[in-house]
Nucleic acid binder design. Sequence first.
DNA 1: TTGAATTTTCAAAAAATATTGAAAATTCAA
DNA 2: TTGAATTTTCAATATTTTTTGAAAATTCAA
Lengths: 168, 168
Amino acid sequence: MSLEASKQKFIDTWGALGTEWGINKSVAQVQALLLVSDNPLSTDEIMESLTISRGNANMSLRQLLDYGIIYKKVIAGDRKEYFVAEKDIWKWALKIALMRKQKEIDPVLSVLTELEAETKKDKTAEGKALHQTVHEIQAFTEQLSTLVERVAGSTRGELLLKLLKLVM
Amino acid sequence: MSLEASKQKFIDTWGALGTEWGINKSVAQVQALLLVSDNPLSTDEIMESLTISRGNANMSLRQLLDYGIIYKKVIAGDRKEYFVAEKDIWKWALKIALMRKQKEIDPVLSVLTELEAETKKDKTAEGKALHQTVHEIQAFTEQLSTLVERVAGSTRGELLLKLLKLVM
DNA sequence: TTGAATTTTCAAAAAATATTGAAAATTCAA
DNA sequence: TTGAATTTTCAATATTTTTTGAAAATTCAA
């Protein structure tokens, strides 16, 4: 397999995985392309390499910049913007986890907390069953949210202690 | 808020969360409905409650049975099938995690392992950069896969030791 | 067996999501 | 300033995914 073919396989695999986990295919592919490039790439190079439109490339890049998992790189004497990926997987995986926690898990957590309080009063059998279920899922989600936060703010070295506290 | 309204809010919230994480909305809603029901429900009751078609209800139920997170419940003297949810969140969350690991993460892991070997030989700067990136993501994914497997086979009590081993 | 009740299948339709591409906005060297 | 280069926006289009619903298959009591 040629280098080019290996890169392509990585990009395709990464795009497919993203799709399964609710991340736009183009966004995942742009990250993958930058991850396997040893030099910064311009929007035009990305468009050509992935055969996607300028609009798509632009929006995907903005989203990855938002996530904080790619960076702009200025190249002297060139007006174009260039981009590089954060290559430290520990860093970018945690940023994605933290971002998805904030955007997707925390809003659910606040609904669960509201419903937990709301259903507390009810003394019917049906009401108690509902409260019990909501309570357990609320507590679980809260622990998950806490775990992500604690892990996100840690080096690998600190992680052990924090996991210990959490599990005990 | 009435009990009915609380249930509905839970079901809607759960369906929306599922969608964001690549789980079909109807599938997530059927699980949610069964989670907050204190008695078994038939396909007809589920169809009516969620206003979804028979085909959709049937396929969603089969998928949840496949995942092992809902069960069939026979009601004496009734030919219809009834369904109940696994209410222990620790059990069903781990089953979902394990299932997604097997179906989605492990195939990616095997591609990464293949690419890691494939790119090992290459001595060009570009080849070394690619190999390094693939290697790191491969190792990370493998650890993740191992983590899910170990956690899945554990009670909460055993988990501490396994986490310890993994992090050290 | 028979046939009514129930479940399953899957092609077609609908809905949701992603992508395009050209116009508008912005940037910046001369 | 000016205007060419570059980036951004977003309505229109394309693609993918989900859902429907009716026909086919299956089940089971009589």
